[in-house]
Nucleic acid binder design. Structure first.
Lengths: 241, 241
DNA sequence: GTCGGGTATATTGTATACAATTATACGAGG
DNA sequence: CCTCGTATAATTGTATACAATATACCCGAC
């Protein structure tokens, strides 16, 4: 939710604020800035050669994206994702991706349908070759196509928000096991349900796809990666209430 | 989504930015600033006796809340809600309020349960007396209690976002007919399902509660209020793509 | 040694000046 | 009369100076 149509400022590559925003987003998602790390206005400004003003404004946008949290008079901190957060997000996504698939069955365009089929075909190819980066990229793109196909700016934006939010976690697990193949098979089933016009089936399959993705993450080390921070953040929440 | 824990800055009543933010939010929700109206930094600043800086930052927060949209180098505009947006939101809320009720069945505290019962009792009282403002207030509060009871900061924040977003529309319709009574009866049923520990029933009732609320809005003039803007915004979307 | 206060320092918050961009008005040319 | 272009005004974007706040450190009292 929130601003569900960001093409104006998020794609604003030409203002300093826009450039700072995009750079910081990339650096957070890539892991250059770690969870709970403090971002200081002057340091970032000097590094990028701009004053504090555009940095401050970029901070607000990053907060809007959920990537940092701003505490008044204190600072900006990279958002931590707890294991509980991830679980909640997948629970929510399970429902909403299902809704999205159901709506997309009615609304998907010919071009979107074709891109979806191509996506699945390509993912199989890269899976055979073991190209992990491309697999992750195509997996992201599959979901984006689905979001765009549902013909609801609000649902699309909400799902993209959640999707981006778990990206840091998701990429790690997708690349470490055989989930890629199974995931793409599920994509194919969803695609075929949509193609055949069976909205109910598409919804059900999309629901299950999220549940499977989450179960796989739990099996493959979600706890190890984020378990410690879960406690840390819990403490953080209580003593600032 | 986005920053799902805003108690730090949203409750920041003491900074100028926080005050400007709260004031503007109230003015937008109350209808002082109409849909698609342009908000100018200097004008707002002068009116509130502050410089442009805190106004600009408040603008970013309002964008974060989805109340305005900022177009680079042009201006900030009050967000328009189309009939389609409202429909989409209620579709999403139906699913998520259901999930929320299901989770709350397990997690609700004794205090929350008591406040919920009191809320329903009071709503009946004010319904008898015809106190429309209090009824709307209690309706809002019922949902907030439910959101807080689900024990998921993410789901709570997401639902509060959507809830606030349709507030401008919802209040108008709730106050104009007999939906208040029916709505409170549905609240009671949801509460009783939660109290009896029947999570599945609570979910189903909460689902239906949203569907009923939306149907009622459509029956009672949603089109008349927002139909015109729907077209306007549609145009807006296409020619800025 | 520990606790408390106070000063110094670092960091964020706000105001203002200036630059860049966009909108408006007006006049020349067709 | 219309159109286009230029000049002017209005508005947002950015940098910087200063204020307020929080943090860290030191020092003295107990």
């Amino acid at each position: 939710m929130t601003n569900y149509d960001k093409k104006y400022d998020a794609n604003d590559k030409y203002s300093l604020r826009g450039r700072v925003f995009q750079r910081l987003r990339e650096d957070i998602l890539s892991g250059k800035y770690k969870e709970h790390e403090e971002l200081k206005e002057v340091a970032i400004g000097e590094e990028l050669g701009v004053s504090r003003t555009p940095v401050r404004e970029a901070f607000r946008q990053l907060e809007l994206e959920g990537l940092i949290r701003i505490v008044p008079n204190k600072g900006a901190y990279v958002t931590g994702i707890t294991a509980k957060d991830v679980k909640d997000i997948y629970m929510i996504r399970s429902l909403l991706e299902g809704l999205c698939a159901r709506l997309a069955t009615e609304k998907i365009s010919k071009e979107q349908m074709e891109e979806m089929e191509e996506n699945i075909y390509l993912a199989d190819f890269h899976e055979d070759k073991g190209h992990l980066d491309q697999i992750a990229e195509l997996d992201n793109r599959f979901h984006d196509i689905l979001y765009e196909a549902c013909d609801s700016k609000l649902l699309e934006h909400t799902l993209k928000d959640f999707h981006r939010y778990v990206l840091r976690v998701r990429q790690k697990t997708l690349a470490t096991n055989t989930r890629g193949r199974a995931s793409n098979d599920e994509h194919r089933q969803i695609m075929e349900a949509i193609k055949s016009g069976d909205a109910g089936l598409a919804e059900k399959l999309a629901n299950q796809h999220m549940i499977n993705a989450y179960d796989n993450m739990v099996k493959n080390g979600l706890k190890e990666i984020y378990g410690e921070n879960a406690e840390e953040s819990a403490k953080e929440n209580t003593d600032t209430k």
